[in-house]
Design a protein around this nucleic acid. Structure first.
Length: 835
RNA sequence: GCCCGGGUGGCGGAAUGGCAGACGCUGAGGACUUAAAAUCCUCCGGGGAUUUUUCCUCAUGUGGGUUCGACUCCCACCCCGGGCACCA
């Protein structure tokens, strides 16, 4: 009698897999491919069961696909740049590389301990020059195409540290993380941007390719984020002052323009100063304006902040009505969206309503609801924002809103004072970080020739090995002279390097291409290899990355396509977002102190138990509450299966593989084989169609329970049939608990490793016998189950009805009544409708 | 405010419009054992009737609807979780 010793078994098989290079793959156009990928981890601290669940799901998919004959690419790597490493280095006075590499070693050890089927030869770490040089290479290509540019932009600034802070370093609603008494300020700095907005339309339109294979809500979040809206620009001429150009406003509701009772500009709108020149109320207004511009860093506050406005003393002319309306400045108008100026239509916009009420501006109804009582501007309690019928709108009165919009846009275009326009919420991607631990941006500044790109031949621009990391003052690279001082690629004269580094989302926007060709030192990747493996067949990760990571990855793909590097529009064919692992109702995290360490679990129960538990405890898309009691159940189950195989192995090890023969089976054998085949079919469905790993496991548990109840099997079940049953059971478990499965496979007498085995399939005859030949059919009377009768499979309606009518449980409910209808679902159910 | 999810026993959860609660956890009882652990077996939503067997009835957030039949589909509402948000 052997005992289940996961520590020994798992080490043994991991070594065999490594020796046989089971998980190493190469592009091979003669084989069908499958690229399954889990989002690459940021290596911080230790790996917990929340991480593990993600990889367990991916590994089941990878192993099932391998067993089904696919050439599977399943790689792993490290998102190794980033702020935490730099912070840790400042705190502990070490180098970010040391901290990062220690964590990587820890993470890698953990993943290996769990036996995930990665091709480790393809491992990449984004902080290595072999990787980040290609970030720089792509940046230069984008610079050439005008997709990378510099502009002034706001950053968080701590006046005590004298340095730029990331959003996550701004704490407690606007204070510095290191000086909790110091309010963070905003400063304008020149920053690098990538022109994501050049692809706004494609990023929305090509979401269509993902419908049905990405979670609906992720698509919705992306669509929302890009925020395309159809509207119009309209020019309002300014009265009373010479030399002020017309004010352009943006609106999605041009049909409400007759109800505009003011123009409102963003506080930072460039025309504000000109309007105030010589205005009678200039001095008072300017103080208020200065305060408005000093907006809080926190955008959450904005939504709830009270609306504040200042009248400029000027007026503009409504090009539709010719009416003179006042020009205001309002704190709720954003310079970054549309044209930075709006028309206020209080009757039909909630924000305008609030503003105009406060400042006693007139309210005018110009759209009436289609049904219901007409609106009256004197008694209006809230704005009416829906479409309806135009009202008091000159020649457009009486038109439905949709039609009014069309006609009024056309009218504005003819008159030369407006045009239809689409605007996006999406902004360009700011990639500048005033940090050390990131990819240096490869440009230099020459006093003679200005900004110059670093030539490809000089890549990579390496990070200096020994920066001064203090968290204060200038950015680390700027205070490292040996890095900053360089020569101009054009004239050879002295020049300064750019000292910003790139956002780490750059690293993760294209890493999955590099996996296809991780060691190429000529180009980012070989096109043929990528065109074999791409698109990613299945990407698995947390919902937290639903917007930015995936949006930037999609953007990057489109840029690469336009550079001629790839031919597809979308990099990720299918996306799956798994739920979080929680403890005490909240996600596991080091800061909350509720992590369950993955290595600890592997030491206590073994990797297989840890894997199967995270798969069993909840469906993969849902959050999972960790329970130390429940994992014991998974441990018991694996022991139960192991004992079963161990008990029978000696007697069946040398039995021949069974040649299916329906006729020779006795009842006990038939029941056992049938249940085995049925289980197999259900598990296959759960894996392939539904991703219900929890119910797949439940099926296998049920089969195991039934085998136990049929013990002793040796009474009446031939060795070859016992072998068939136990082998299928083993194969079904293999993708989820690969180590114990290999061990049992060997115990059952197989010379070749299970890794060479295929997923079981049934021949026609076997499928036929897997069907039940006798069915427990529920019989309903008026939709309520009153009896269950045993009928032969395929029995016809009249025979079943006859049998049902003879059942005492049915008789009781139909006696003295008339059967008015019979619902018969063959092999399923009978329902008698009586009166 | 808008957009997604979700609401089923003591708990995690299962159920293509067809026997609600599979499977697991917890709990109870029994077997084995000197004993314990481990293991194996049985029971385990509420109420009622019945000595037993068994039968009836209520029950999937609430209220309606469609249907022979609804956890499942439709309408309205309540609660919980998440995302977005002065985006004109």
């Amino acid at each position: 009698m052997a005992e289940y010793k996961p520590q020994e078994i798992e080490a043994k098989w991991q070594q065999r897999w490594a020796e046989a290079r089971v998980f190493e793959t190469e592009a091979d156009p003669s084989k069908p491919k499958y690229y399954v990928l889990e989002m690459l981890p940021y290596p911080s601290g230790t790996m917990h069961m929340g991480h593990m669940r993600n990889y367990a799901i991916g590994d089941v998919v990878a192993r099932v696909k391998r067993m089904r004959g696919f050439n599977v690419l399943h790689p792993m790597g490290w998102d190794a740049f980033g702020l935490p490493a730099e912070n840790a280095a400042i705190k502990n006075n070490t180098h970010p590389r040391v901290w990062t590499n220690n964590n990587i070693a820890e993470f890698q050890k953990t993943l290996r301990r769990f036996g995930f089927s990665y091709d480790w030869r393809r491992e990449i770490s984004t902080c290595e020059p072999e990787y980040y040089r290609w970030n720089q290479w792509f940046f230069l290509r984008m610079l050439e195409k005008g997709l990378a540019y510099r502009k002034k932009s706001r950053v968080n600034w701590c006046p005590k540290c004298c340095t730029v802070l990331a959003n996550e370093q701004v704490v407690n609603g606007g204070y510095c993380w290191r000086h909790e008494d110091t309010l963070v300020e905003t400063r304008e700095l020149e920053q690098w941007f990538l022109k994501t907005t050049a692809y706004s339309d494609q990023l929305v339109d090509e979401l269509k390719e993902l419908e049905g294979s990405w979670p609906e809500r992720v698509i919705a979040m992306q669509r929302n984020w890009i925020g395309r809206s159809q509207g119009a620009r309209v020019k309002f001429n300014v009265c009373d002052v010479a030399g002020v150009p017309p004010i352009e406003i943006f609106t999605t509701r041009i049909d409400t323009i007759y109800g505009a009772t003011a123009i409102i500009l963003a506080p930072t709108h460039p025309l504000v100063a000109k309007l105030l020149e010589g205005s009678s109320i200039r001095s008072g207004a300017e103080a208020q304006l200065a305060q408005m511009r000093q907006t809080s860093v926190k955008t959450e506050d904005l939504a709830t902040a009270e609306k504040v406005g200042v009248f400029t003393g000027r007026h503009a002319l409504n090009p539709f009505s010719g009416e003179r309306i006042p020009i205001w400045v309002g704190n709720f108008v954003l310079m970054e969206y549309g044209t930075g100026a709006i028309m206020a239509v209080p009757a039909h916009d909630a924000r305008d309503f609030e503003f105009c009420q406060k400042y006693h501006l007139p309210i005018r109804v110009v759209v009436q609801p289609v049904n219901g009582t007409p609106l009256d501007e004197k008694s209006l309690k809230e704005s009416f924002g829906d479409y309806g019928v135009s009202f008091h709108s000159g020649i457009f009165s009486g038109l439905p809103s949709e039609e009014a919009i069309q006609k009024m846009v056309a009218f504005a275009e003819q008159g030369g004072f407006g045009r239809g326009e689409i605007v996006f919420r999406l902004r360009d991607w700011g990639i500048s970080r005033q940090r050390y631990w990131g990819t240096p941006i490869p440009v230099v500044y020459c006093p003679e020739h200005g900004m110059q790109p670093v030539p490809d031949s000089d890549l990579p621009v390496l990070l200096p090995p020994n920066p001064k990391l203090t968290g204060e003052g200038e950015s680390p690279l700027a205070s490292t002279p040996e890095f900053v001082n360089t020569t101009c690629p054009k004239c050879g004269g002295p020049a300064r390097r750019e000292t910003d580094t790139m956002d780490t989302f750059v690293d993760s926007s294209w890493y999955f291409y590099r996996y296809c060709d991780p060691h190429n030192d000529k180009v980012p990747f070989d096109r043929a290899k990528v065109s074999y493996w791409f698109p990613i067949d299945q990407y698995i990760g947390g919902i937290t990355h639903a917007i930015l990571h995936l949006l930037y990855s999609r953007f990057w793909c489109k840029v690469m396509r336009d550079l001629g590097l790839v031919t597809h529009n979308e990099p990720i064919a299918r996306l799956f977002t798994q739920g979080m692992v929680q403890k005490g109702g909240v996600a596991m995290s080091k800061s909350r102190g509720n992590v369950v360490g993955a290595i600890e679990m592997a030491e206590k129960y073994g990797a297989d138990t840890g894997r199967i538990y995270t798969l069993f405890a909840a469906p993969p898309e849902k959050d999972l509450e960790w329970s130390e009691e429940s994992i014991e159940g998974s441990w018991r189950f694996l022991n139960r299966v192991f004992r079963l195989v161990d008990k029978h192995a000696p007697a069946i090890r040398d039995a021949k593989n069974w040649n299916f023969d329906a006729a020779s089976m006795n009842d006990k054998e038939r029941d056992l084989i049938r249940l085995t085949y049925q289980t197999m079919l259900r598990v296959t469905q759960d894996f392939e169609k539904r991703w219900h790993f929890n119910s797949a496991i439940a099926q296998v548990m049920e089969l195991t329970n039934e085998i136990y109840l049929a013990e002793p099997l040796e009474n009446g079940v031939r060795p070859e049939i016992r072998k068939e049953v136990l082998q299928i059971l083993t194969l079904l478990l293999a993708p989820m608990t690969p180590h114990i499965a290999e061990e049992m496979w060997e115990m059952l007498g197989n010379k070749d490793g299970l890794w060479k085995a295929s997923w079981p399939v049934l021949a026609e005859q076997q499928l036929e016998m897997a069907k039940d030949d006798e069915i427990d059919m529920p019989v309903q009377v008026n939709g309520r189950v009153r009896a269950t009768i045993q009928v032969a499979a395929g029995l016809g309606e009249s025979e079943v009805v006859a049998k049902a009518k003879a059942d005492p449980g049915v008789v009781r409910h139909i006696e003295g009544k008339q059967i008015v209808k019979v619902i018969f679902v063959p092999n399923k159910l009978l329902n008698l409708v009586v009166k």
